[in-house]
C-alpha cells in the first residue's frame, strides 16, 4: 500500500466526509445525556478559569490587570491542546473493533480527536469575546492573526497525536504517562502567568518549551493587542512541520500490524 505523506493526505481527503461525520458524532456524544448539554463546553473552561483566578489572586503577589480575562485567553487553547492529546492517545486502541473490520485510514482517529477539540475551542471564542467586552479589553487588528496560530497549533498537535497514538498501540504506558506530562507542561508554560514573571535563572525553560512562544503569542495578539514575537513563532512553525512528518513516519511504520495488535 502506498505510504508517504502525499498518499496519506490523499487518503484523508478521500475520507473527509467520514472525518466530518466522526467529529460531529464526537461533539454530539460528549454532552448527550447531560441536562446542560452543549453549555458545558463553555461552562467547563469558565469554572476552571474561576478556580485559577481565585487561587492565584490569593497566592500570587503579582497583580495582573484583568487576570480572569488574561487566564481565559491562554486557558482555552490549552484545553484544546491537552484534551486533544488525551483523547487521541488512546484513539487507535479504542478504535480497535473498527480497525479489525473496516478498511479506512487509521490516522483519521487521532485527527478526529484534535478536530473535535478544535471545534470546541472555536465555539468558546464568543464567550472569550464577551469577557473582553465586560473586562474592557479592546481587540486590535492583530486579533486577525489568530487563524495562523490555530494552524500552527493544529499541525503541531496532529503530529504529536499521530506519534503518541501509534506508539500507544504497542506500549499502553504512553497513555498513563501523558496525563502527568500534560499537568507539568501546563504549569511550565506561561498560561496562568506571563513569561516575564519567570525568574532569570529559569528562563531556559521558555526556550526548551515549544509551547511557550505559542501561548505568549495568543496573549500578544488578543489580550495585549500587539505583534507576537516572530522568532519564537517561526521556530515553532518549523518544528510543527518536522513533528507532523515524524508523526506520519511513525504511523506508516507501525500501521501494518495495528489490526493484529489492537
Amino acid at each position: 500500500m502506498a505510504s508517504g505523506v502525499p498518499a496519506t493526505l490523499r487518503e484523508i481527503i478521500r475520507f473527509r466526509d467520514l472525518v466530518t461525520a466522526l467529529v460531529v458524532r464526537e461533539l454530539k456524544m460528549r454532552y448527550r445525556g447531560s441536562v446542560l448539554g452543549f453549555v458545558w463546553s463553555f461552562l467547563n473552561p469558565l469554572l476552571l478559569m474561576l478556580v485559577y483566578a481565585l487561587v492565584f489572586s490569593f497566592f500570587s503577589r503579582h497583580q495582573i490587570e484583568n487576570y480572569t480575562v488574561f487566564v481565559l485567553t491562554g486557558l482555552l487553547p490549552w484545553l484544546w491542546f491537552s484534551l486533544g492529546l488525551s483523547h487521541s492517545v488512546g484513539s487507535i486502541v479504542s478504535g480497535g473493533p473498527l480497525i479489525k473490520k473496516i478498511v479506512f485510514p487509521v490516522e483519521i482517529l487521532p485527527l478526529v480527536a484534535v478536530l473535535s477539540n478544535l471545534a470546541n475551542y472555536l465555539l468558546s471564542l464568543p464567550i472569550l469575546l464577551l469577557f473582553y467586552l465586560v473586562g474592557g479589553v479592546t481587540l486590535t487588528a492583530w486579533a486577525l492573526f489568530l487563524p495562523v496560530l490555530v494552524v500552527v497549533q493544529f499541525v503541531f498537535m496532529t503530529g504529536l497525536c499521530l506519534i503518541l497514538a501509534s506508539i500507544n498501540v504497542y506500549l499502553k504506558d504512553v497513555e498513563q504517562v501523558l496525563g502527568n506530562v500534560l499537568t507539568l507542561t501546563f504549569f511550565l508554560t506561561p498560561i496562568l502567568y506571563p513569561a516575564s514573571l519567570i525568574p532569570d535563572r529559569f528562563r531556559v525553560l521558555l526556550y526548551v518549551n515549544p509551547l511557550a512562544p505559542l501561548f505568549e503569542a495568543y496573549r500578544n495578539i488578543l489580550f495585549e493587542g500587539r505583534a507576537p514575537a516572530w522568532e519564537g513563532l517561526a521556530g515553532l512553525g518549523l518544528l510543527s512541520l518536522v513533528v507532523l512528518a515524524a508523526g506520519f513516519f511513525t504511523l506508516n511504520r507501525l500501521r501494518d500490524a495495528f489490526a493484529e495488535e489492537v
Binding site: 466526509d17 467520514l18 466530518t20 461525520a21 466522526l22 454530539k28 473498527l98 473496516i102 479506512f104
Partner: peptide, 25 residues
C-alpha cells in the same frame, strides 16, 4: 453494523457507516 453507535439514530448511523465504507455524503 460494525461501527454502529448505539446512542445514535438509524439515520445518523447510515451516514456514519456509509462514510466508513468509503461513500461520500
Amino acid at each position: 453494523g460494525a461501527g454502529f453507535h448505539p446512542e445514535f439514530t438509524g439515520r445518523e448511523n447510515v451516514y456514519l457507516n456509509g462514510a466508513m465504507l468509503g461513500m461520500s455524503k
